[in-house]
């Protein structure tokens, strides 16, 4: 790494290294100084705001204002004229293949299969490995993909899905299994839109499977923590009463874990709605694998000049879908915290 670039602009460097801590220190010391001058009773009311204000300012400046700007822009054309719902009309016209419909459909696939997949596997792994002595090692291994960037996940899974024409030695793991064990022709997992069960395109499912592999460690770790929080004497009492292990899981463990399952589930729903990196790195939205976030990106950067109007409309659609889930998630999270 070449750090000499840092020395090309000495005044800025000094301002950053000295100025930033100085301003921060001055703010804290100054704020505390002002609070001390206040009457005793007012202090507890004012002090939190002094500490929260910088964060509030940053959130307002970098999140709230741009979000409001995006909403305003979604009702304008690219020259700033008010056009009502035209941009949304563009996105929602031409059902089932026009506008954003392919992306909406695929987001729905993500919503269902990514969320349920990560939850089911996470729960299964948490419960199964709770009962073995080598739990820690296995859990660390399963958690590892979380530390990999999604793009690296895709690179790994491109090897899993690699395709060679029938009759050739298959380089992809899945096609190798398919051709040697099942004696079937290899498939192009990433390009093949053949629907499974007549409904779910193979390539969308392949993309989601790779994403689930990347995230399952997250749900497993949190669910495992919830599992460990269930008092042992409760399970003991159920066993004494003659309940089998499956009954205990269904009637005792699962209900007690439910709030955590809901929090993890809603978090996964948000991840599914904003899915982008896996899709971008696998197909960039080709072969009907587009999702809303990728469509927004394409509207911004595959166009010149950038189509801010339509991209904003897609962003608002995405935001409008995420917000209710977000609120539900926060409420549920608070409920879980309150129960502790």
């Amino acid at each position: 790494m070449d750090f000499s670039v840092l020395l090309t602009d000495i005044p800025t460097l000094v301002a950053v290294i000295v100025g930033v801590p100085l301003v921060l220190a001055a703010y804290i010391v100054g704020g505390e100084y002002l609070v001390r001058r206040l009457p005793d009773k007012a202090r507890p009311a004012v002090r939190p705001w002094i500490w929260v204000a910088p964060a509030l300012l940053l959130v307002t400046g970098f999140l709230v204002l741009p979000a409001v700007g995006t909403v305003i822009q979604s009702f304008q054309d690219n020259h700033g004229n008010f056009v009502g719902l035209t941009n949304f009309g563009n996105q929602l016209s031409g059902f089932p293949t026009g506008g954003s419909w392919i992306a909406i459909r695929d987001n729905l696939f993500w919503l269902i299969f990514y969320t349920l997949g990560a939850l089911a596997f996470g729960l299964l792994l948490a419960v199964v490995f709770d009962r073995v002595p080598y739990e820690k090692i296995v859990k660390s291994l399963i958690f590892m993909p979380m530390a990999i960037s999604s793009v690296a996940t895709v690179v790994i899974w491109k090897f899993m899905y690699a395709y060679q024409p029938p009759g050739q030695p298959q380089t992809g793991t899945l096609n190798a299994i398919l051709s040697t064990v099942f004696r079937q022709d290899p498939r192009t997992w990433v390009q093949d839109v053949t629907p499974i069960l007549g409904l779910f395109p193979l390539n969308n499912m392949a993309l989601i499977a790779a994403a689930v592999w990347g995230i399952v460690g997250f749900s497993m770790v949190i669910l495992s923590a919830a599992l460990k929080g269930i008092p042992g004497d409760l399970l003991e009492a159920a066993r004494v009463d003659g309940a089998g292990e499956i009954t205990i899981f269904r009637r005792v463990i699962f209900p007690l874990m439910m709030p955590t399952v809901v929090v993890v589930g809603t978090t996964l729903v948000i991840f599914a709605l904003k899915a982008f990196d896996v899709v971008y790195a696998f197909t960039a939205g080709n072969y009907q694998t587009d999702v809303l976030a990728n469509r927004m990106y394409k509207l911004l950067y595959d166009h010149f000049p950038s189509d801010y109007a339509n991209a904003s409309a897609v962003a608002v659609i995405l935001l409008a879908t995420v917000i209710p889930v977000l609120i539900f998630n926060l409420r549920q999270f608070r409920a879980v915290e309150a129960r502790r």
């Binding site: 690699a162 395709y163 060679q164 024409p165 192009t188 390009q191």
Partner: peptide, 11 residues
């Protein structure tokens, strides 16, 4: 073309 449409798209 070697491998036909599938191989073209996947390679």
């Amino acid at each position: 073309v070697y491998g036909g449409a599938k191989n073209m798209a996947a390679t």
